Amino acid sequence: MSNATQAAPALPLMDETYYRSRRRRQGLREDLNSFWFLLPILALFVILFLVPLVQTAYYSFTDFNGYSTNMKFVGFDNYKKVFSDPSTLSGLGFTILYAIVVMIGVTALAIPLAVVLNRKFVGCNFVRSVFFFFSVPSLAIMGMVWKYIFSPMKTGVVNSILTSLGFDPIPWLSNNS
């Protein structure tokens, strides 16, 4: 008796290009979904940064004084006036010098200090806490500001806006239990 097993007929293998195109479509779909999440931030960037930047560049080539609506194109005359003024050049030179000195000074001080504080020595935790201590008041002040904004009473900024719109105040930072 011969027990011959017959192999099931082989299914045609899908072409590798099919899988590639499927992955490409799926990646495109994910990119599109990511774009929708980024759209509000992109809109804020355009509104708060790019539009004022373009307006400023446009105004810099005109005789716009901030009040008049009729302005004419003057080209690079504004830039010639600014960069030929000795006080402007002096201020620009001082600003560049200050930026370079502060950058080098902070880096030259911060890196060795970080290396020393990363080692174990007597009083290491005390010295680290002294450096950390100066960041605590700013965090506490920020907490107080947010507490004022989201105060559960009608005096909070958000609740006063909601009350003026006809809504009841929301107990943001309170716990009913």
Rank of each mutant, 00 (worst) to 15 (best):
Q6W: 00
P9R: 14
A10C: 08
L11K: 15
P12Q: 15
Y19T: 06
Y19F: 15
S21P: 02
R22G: 00
R23T: 12
R25E: 13
R25F: 10
L32Y: 11
L32Q: 07
N33L: 09
S34N: 11
F35N: 13
F35P: 03
W36M: 13
P40H: 05
L42F: 09
A43N: 03
L53N: 05
V54K: 01
Y59P: 02
S60Q: 10
T62A: 05
F64Q: 00
F64M: 05
T69V: 14
F73T: 09
G75R: 08
G75W: 03
F76T: 07
Y79P: 00
K80E: 01
F83D: 01
F83E: 00
S84F: 10
D85T: 06
S87C: 03
S90M: 07
G91K: 12
F94R: 14
I96N: 01
V101L: 13
V101I: 13
M103V: 03
M103E: 02
I104C: 09
A108C: 04
A108N: 05
A110Q: 09
A110K: 08
I111C: 06
I111D: 04
P112H: 11
V115T: 15
V115W: 04
L117M: 15
N118A: 14
N118V: 11
K120L: 02
C124T: 12
R128P: 04
F131A: 15
F133A: 15
S135N: 12
V136F: 14
L139H: 11
A140Y: 04
I141P: 02
M144S: 05
W146R: 04
K147H: 04
F150I: 01
F150R: 01
F150Q: 00
P152S: 07
K154A: 14
V157I: 14
N159R: 00
N159M: 08
N159L: 00
S160D: 01
I161D: 00
P171L: 04
P171T: 07
W172F: 15
L173Q: 07
S177C: 05
S177K: 00
